[in-house]
Every structure is written in structure tokens, then in C-alpha cells.
Computed example of a mutant assay.
Amino acid sequence: MNVVRSEGRTFPTHRCLVPASEFRHRSFSFSLANGDWFYFAGVWRPAIEDWPEAYAILTIEANADLAPFHDRQMAVLTRDQRLAWLDGLLPEAEILRSLPAGTFRVKRHSIDPVQATLAV
């Protein structure tokens, strides 16, 4: 999996969704405040020659909830946005946008999962 900046780009084909319930950055996890699942907006590439199928998650400027932790975030789509993304019903600039402040619940973990893995 890769991440790709979305600003200024169009993705007329090969759109995909990556379902998720949370994502992490260092010792923090982020989930929707309403507890619902969401999707990362992505694009995929078919297998070619010796390279298998692959996908990338698109990134956007971080919303107000995530900005204290990082300047970018993966493009999160809510359930009601998923078909608009897959079917190309809205221009990229309209759908690949930061969600409003208060959308994400931020949870601090007592230990950074990466550091915990390194300590083993």
C-alpha cells in the first residue's frame, strides 16, 4: 500500500475504497466520533508484467482534529460518500476534502505501537 497526494489530480478510473474503523499515528488513534466505519479513498493499478495489482490511498490536508498531529491525512469518506467516489459523481476537489472539526475521536495510547514492537 502506498499513499498519494490528491490535490490537483484527477482519478477518472480505477477508484477503490479501503474500509476502516480507525487509523493510527504514533501513540494516537483516530476514529469517527459517531463510531461508524468509514473508507479511505483510493486508486488501484492492474497487474502488469511482473508487477502485481496494487493500490494507493489518497491523502489530503489534515482536518482540524488531526492537524495538531500531522499536516496530512488519508482521504476519509463516510458511508454516504462511497458511491459518489466509486461512480465519479463528484469532482475530486469536492469529495476529497477534510471532514469538519469534531468528526474524529482522538484516543491517546499509553505506548507508541512502533516503539512497543521495537522493544520486543
Results as ranks from 00 to 15, higher is better:
26 R>L: 14
25 H>P: 00
63 N>T: 07
8 G>V: 08
1 M>F: 13
10 T>L: 13
52 P>G: 09
78 T>Q: 13
60 I>F: 06
80 D>M: 06
60 I>M: 06
42 G>L: 06
36 D>F: 02
21 S>F: 09
4 V>F: 00
5 R>N: 14
86 L>P: 05
7 E>P: 02
47 A>S: 15
85 W>S: 10
12 P>F: 05
53 E>S: 08
56 A>T: 13
18 V>F: 03
84 A>G: 04
85 W>A: 07
10 T>Y: 07
13 T>M: 03
33 A>R: 15
86 L>Q: 11
63 N>M: 09
30 F>M: 10
76 V>P: 01
76 V>K: 03
31 S>D: 08
52 P>W: 11
4 V>G: 00
38 F>K: 05
45 R>L: 00
5 R>L: 14
25 H>Q: 08
60 I>L: 05
32 L>F: 03
86 L>A: 06
15 R>L: 04
32 L>Q: 00
82 R>D: 11
10 T>S: 15
43 V>D: 00
38 F>I: 05
79 R>H: 11
23 F>S: 10
52 P>C: 09
65 D>Q: 12
5 R>A: 15
60 I>A: 04
53 E>P: 03
23 F>W: 15
76 V>N: 01
73 Q>C: 14
11 F>A: 09
42 G>D: 07
48 I>F: 14
27 S>V: 00
8 G>K: 09
17 L>R: 04
83 L>M: 10
73 Q>F: 04
5 R>M: 12
77 L>A: 06
23 F>L: 12
18 V>G: 01
84 A>I: 02
35 G>W: 11
14 H>N: 15
70 H>F: 00
30 F>K: 03
71 D>C: 02
85 W>D: 04
68 P>R: 12
10 T>I: 14
7 E>F: 07
